[in-house]
Design a protein around this nucleic acid. Sequence first.
DNA 1: ACCCGCTCCGTTAGCGCTAACAAGGACGAA
DNA 2: TTCGTCCTTGTTAGCGCTAACGGAGCGGGT
Lengths: 370, 370
Amino acid sequence: MNKPSRRSRGTTTIEDVARAAGVSAMTVSRVVNGGQNVRETTRHAVLEAVKKLNYSPNTAARSLAAGEATHIGMLYANPSAAYLSQFLIGALHAARRAGCHLVIESCESEDADEQAEVTRRFATSDVEGVVLPPPLSESQPIIAELAAIGIPVVTVAMGTPAEDSLNVRIDDFAAAAEMTRYLLSLGHRSIGFIKGHPNHIASHDRARGFAAALREYGVDPDEAPMEQGYFTYRSGLAASERLLSRPKPPTAIFASNDDMAAAAISVAHRRGLTVPGDLSVVGFDDTSLATTVWPELTTVRQPISAMAEAALELMLADLRGRRSGGSRHFAERVLEHELIVRESSSAPGAPWVGRSRRSRTAPVHTADVG
Amino acid sequence: MNKPSRRSRGTTTIEDVARAAGVSAMTVSRVVNGGQNVRETTRHAVLEAVKKLNYSPNTAARSLAAGEATHIGMLYANPSAAYLSQFLIGALHAARRAGCHLVIESCESEDADEQAEVTRRFATSDVEGVVLPPPLSESQPIIAELAAIGIPVVTVAMGTPAEDSLNVRIDDFAAAAEMTRYLLSLGHRSIGFIKGHPNHIASHDRARGFAAALREYGVDPDEAPMEQGYFTYRSGLAASERLLSRPKPPTAIFASNDDMAAAAISVAHRRGLTVPGDLSVVGFDDTSLATTVWPELTTVRQPISAMAEAALELMLADLRGRRSGGSRHFAERVLEHELIVRESSSAPGAPWVGRSRRSRTAPVHTADVG
DNA sequence: ACCCGCTCCGTTAGCGCTAACAAGGACGAA
DNA sequence: TTCGTCCTTGTTAGCGCTAACGGAGCGGGT
């Protein structure tokens, strides 16, 4: 008579696999965890058994036994909803793979002391590391507080990070230059630029990329119409208004993010300008706003989900390194961006209808009001 | 000589608390988990010790020992980004409290077979229950597949759910009626309504609420200008265009969600109408779009995060119930909505400037173009 | 006195997995 | 041969927590 184990749910355990493969549980564990020092034939047998029994390790047991990181924190502050959801999706996927929990908290305050306070409460609660997406990745109070507590940090999309830090980003300079070159290649020579929030280093990188590309085409960047924006729709309205009120308005507007680009389109429409016929408008980020507005925005896509995944992986690697006693290895990962051409850009003065362009989908919906 | 335990991280365990309180670990466990059958004095002593040592239970160990649910799935399909991020935030908070993992997967296909296929792969992987936010909460193929597999489901924001299901929602009917009454009380009698996607039961509830409120004020709903929309910005453009092209255009537009309301504002502006001076526009959902556009939208706030938390709680309660053998208890939770009055609505014909209204903030930014 | 039932609390035995060590074999160097 | 070393695998001992059970103490019905 075998006393059935306390609570036997029908899940297959490592023991089942071990029995099926004719090895010990330890060997299975080794194989499953990227096993080193396992003979090839053994590995095969184990993998067969794993597949046959459809085994998937119990993450709770794993982290309990290994004493691994279980809670990774993430502190955010009103980024665009689109950015946040993308980021969360990526982070959750990475967390699932690693079998760790994602703990998130918002920190809306702009005040340094308050930020530090929130950070302290958060960091001393339970988390073993903190991921900082923008705009908090630029917040010195928070980073300093985390460093003081001794918790590792991964910043995301911070322009030029410190040497001794973990960072994930894209090359804002190159991306902005690429977009500018695209506009120039369409024939635009008077391109209005709406700058991003001056506190963000990425803003400056994008502006520099814009200027650099202009120079390549022999256009003097200092002559280019440029207005300050703050990444908000509102600031985009104001900046666009100023750009289009100039004596000689630009034929294209490059906004430092999609929100401001959407605002530029709105202003153009109110002034009776067609987009892109009378004015090309391009953005940056490829948030969902880019495909919500009409016409859909030409923009630069950041691989937001992938960046979140990379951030978590960096974090976990660092944590593992710390645990096994090794000294910290700092790292920066630069991911690829992508230029997305949609319907908001064309050659200057070109009629909009009848253009054919390598954009993803033609507008199939109704509603081509104008 | 005490052999130090295998890997002693500095965390305080239940044993530490037990020692400090002079009881056994089991008693601590009981107290921490809503303990029944613990004398009041004992409970106090334990709680003291917990506080003093700043103890927080190890969720990995807990779920391992209790054999509890560890992975709750969530299947989503392109809701608005704002909705998704809000929802994820709420879900993550609940997951953290419960110590379970949130596993998310997208299911973009509209094809029934493909949806079923994705669902099957997802559900048989690892998750013990699935939460379905809109629009998937209306997808019969998915719900049927999940039922066939025998996995519990919580649907969110589904209009009128089946009797034998778990559901979280707001009262769309009441909310729409409330909003309509608000417009009527401002003096509007010709209110254009943009309906939501006909596949969503909530759309019908909102339309019914609209009609009911009109009747209360003696306005014939059948005479009210009404256009079909599909919850997208594009469809909102078309519907608004049609509404405002009528011989006798309405003085207010009530769109069934914020995206379509934002589109209505855009159309109004292009036609040279001021909002809310010439046309009041109100939305539904209070997504971030509502405060992104100018003027900011009067809308109905759904407690999205709270709904996600409620959904997870319902799910976990059901899972616990199943585990302890009890028969399933079906449940529906209706959360409170809230009418948010901002700047896009006013009495018909009222000049915009100088209105003073119980809205949250006056527009302090620049950019009052238009 | 006896039994029964109730409340409160401790003991035992794991949950599924892996760190640490040990053991056995293969192979080359001395 | 003999020792050491590397490679491969198994064994042991938990990680921190809780289900299940058992036992002590108390009160009341018979």
